[in-house]
Simulated scan of single mutants.
Amino acid sequence: MFKKLLVGFILLLIITGCGEQKKQKAVKETPPLPVKVVTIKSSNIPIWMPYTGKTQASSSQEVRARVSGILEEIYYQDGDTVNKGDKLFKIEQMDYIAELELQKAKKNRDLAGLKLAQADVKRYSILAKEGLAPQADLEAYQAKAEAIEADIAYDNAKIDQAELMLSYTIVTAPIDGQVSRRLVDIGNLVGKNETTLLTTINQVDPLYAYFAPSEEDFQKIDRLRSSEVMDAYIDISYNSKSLQKERIFGHVNFSDNTVNPDTSTITMRVEFANKDKRIFPGTFVYVNVFVTDKIPLVGIPPQVIFEDQQGKFVYIVDNKNSAQRLYVKPVYESRFFVLMKPGVLKDGDKVIVNGLIRLKSDLKVAISDVTDTQGIEAIIKNNNLVPLRNVP
């Protein structure tokens, strides 16, 4: 009985050993994992700083009644695009025409009086010279003529004023832009004891986008910027397929001189063309500011970065075609790429960009180089990240 058990136990060991040998052989025969890689090459990569912002009209003008009267005409439709000088409203003119005619009549009366006074001066000049009239009478007529000349100058000023007031009865557009809805209707009394607001005009071409980087970011931008005028572009943040695919370029034309004490931010502004007027003031946008492309850096796609307790790392391929974990220290991260100083990642290193969840150190891989389509230069080109001054 004991011999039978011993023989059975030996047979079991033999069978188990054979199974382990087969498993080990199967492991050894596992083919390399096919992966795609990009080859590292340090270069001057353009750095864009992303922010959220809000658009605002480059000029916004209130159109007010500068004279009082009944509104007689409205020459535009709500929402029309107008040019500077276009007629918008007409206020009744009868009182202002009458005032102008009154001032002209007064001037004509004074001109007639001046003609008579000048004749008296001429006549008394001869008489006084011959001693036939007192010198005092001559001086009185001279003073009268001068007073009438002053009255005529006053009349001219009053005529100019009357013409100006009459011109105010035709309300014109002070700027090019889009007119808002009218705030008064025909027949309303406007301008009585106040400058009645009639409508507003927004100039939306060009359009501004305001954003507020932190004080630290502002100092970084100011320190690293490679040109006096910084390029920028905006992406529309709302869900519009036609606009989401369009990138609108412009430039930074203003930065405030004061830090907001509540938010520790500094307001900046991008100006960009809006010729088709599809973007309205008050739209939330993504603002991207070009800082520099004068610093040699290493760039990789953002999806290849992993992180554990020791820090951020990527997988590279060593000279034995095995995957190896390499810890890195990014200096700049965006949704397009991650940048770091040359050193840890060296020119010629091959970074794995797919199959990442299946990777582990020392795993054999079979590589396919996709640098031309997924490398840093392809990312810059495909996402239109070339600064405007570098575009031919």
Score class of each variant (00 low, 15 high):
T263L: 00
I221L: 03
K245D: 03
E271S: 12
N288F: 06
A212Q: 05
E215L: 11
T196R: 12
I305C: 04
K312V: 12
I305K: 06
L189H: 06
I295E: 01
F249V: 09
K275V: 12
F272P: 00
K312I: 08
R223E: 10
N253D: 13
S264I: 02
Q178R: 11
V304I: 12
T263V: 05
V252S: 02
P296M: 04
D262S: 09
Y238K: 15
S214R: 04
M268I: 04
R223L: 11
K275L: 06
N260K: 10
P261M: 15
V304K: 00
N274W: 01
V298I: 09
L224K: 06
M268Y: 04
G282T: 04
D276K: 06
E215I: 14
L198S: 00
F254V: 01
S237Y: 14
P302H: 04
N253G: 05
F306T: 02
Y286W: 12
S237G: 07
K312A: 11
K192M: 11
G250F: 02
Q219D: 11
N239M: 07
T292C: 08
K275M: 12
E246G: 15
S240W: 12
Q303D: 13
G282W: 05
S214E: 09
S226Q: 06
E246I: 11
P281M: 01
D262W: 07
D222C: 10
H251N: 09
L197Y: 10
E271G: 06
N253R: 12
E216K: 12
I234E: 00
S180L: 05
F313V: 09
P261T: 11
M230L: 14
Q203I: 05
N188K: 09
E307Q: 08
Y210F: 07
Q178G: 09
S237F: 08
K277R: 06
P206D: 07
Y210S: 13
T263H: 02
N239R: 14
E307P: 03
